[in-house]
Design a protein around this nucleic acid. Structure first.
Lengths: 129, 129
DNA sequence: GTAAGTACACACTAAAAGGTAAGTACTATG
DNA sequence: CATAGTACTTACCTTTTAGTGTGTACTTAC
């Protein structure tokens, strides 16, 4: 195990710690993914195709504006696929792309761990709130 | 594979989708972890113990104020251990708790995936920026 | 005919997050 | 003896994020 960052190889550093550099483009993607609603939308879509209003109900507390914004952002990153049927009233379906599926697995890994370990986490917190 | 969220069992829903509920306490923890600097600090500390100034240099772009705030937050959640040696000039060491180690593995899973797939992601983006 | 639902966009405002600069108390280095 | 380094905190200000309310164009249910 490395206890000091300076004893990892340079190639390894480039490969695995690039996000730590401010200028790295993966920073932007990371920020989209870990945004307040991005994580939750990815999680919800991991369970299957949803319509806009369904997503809004699934993701507790999200506003229409933020949901629309988040979806557009994730779509631009290639994680979400949007299919609009030209009918009236409008019918739009959101789902994950293959890229999005892969990503949502990692996001789920994170959120599942938090949920499962919530008792341990709460326990280790000093007091209140 | 479930394509519709309504055909998952209720117990399963409770266990795996609790974050989707606005009132769930795991929401708060998730927000701490996925905060702009939280992810990066967890990542940096995953490589070993760091002093404050070392962390500041490791995490590109973070200000002293935000680093201090982030560390206090992660410490309160039980992910980070702070050891202050009563010497002058001050000497403080930050490291991950066992809980933090487990968490940082999931965070790394996410960031490593993003870094590795950055070419694919950029490719799938329509244009510019 | 009125209300609700569909999938948003837009304008305006409120709140939260984050940056900058300064200060602290002391030491080591040049 | 001035400068830099240590680990922060505080005040102030800017930027970003998010909420609220409105409008659209049309349909279905009551």
């Amino acid at each position: 195990m490395t206890t000091n960052p300076s004893n990892t190889g340079l190639a390894d550093k480039m490969r695995r710690g690039a996000v730590l550099a401010a200028a790295c483009p993966s920073r932007k993607i990371l920020n989209h993914v870990t945004s307040r609603w991005g994580v939750l939308v990815l999680l919800a879509l991991g369970r299957g195709t949803h319509r806009f209003a369904e997503l809004r109900r699934a993701v507790g507390g999200v506003s229409e504006k933020m949901l629309a914004q988040t979806l557009q952002c994730l779509e631009a990153d290639g994680f979400v696929k949007r299919i609009a049927y030209p009918v009236v009233p409008p019918h739009v379906e959101y789902s994950l792309t293959p890229l999005g599926e892969e990503l949502s697995i990692r996001v789920e890994g994170l959120t599942d761990w938090i949920e499962e370990n919530l008792p341990r986490i709460m326990e280790s917190r000093p007091v209140s709130e």
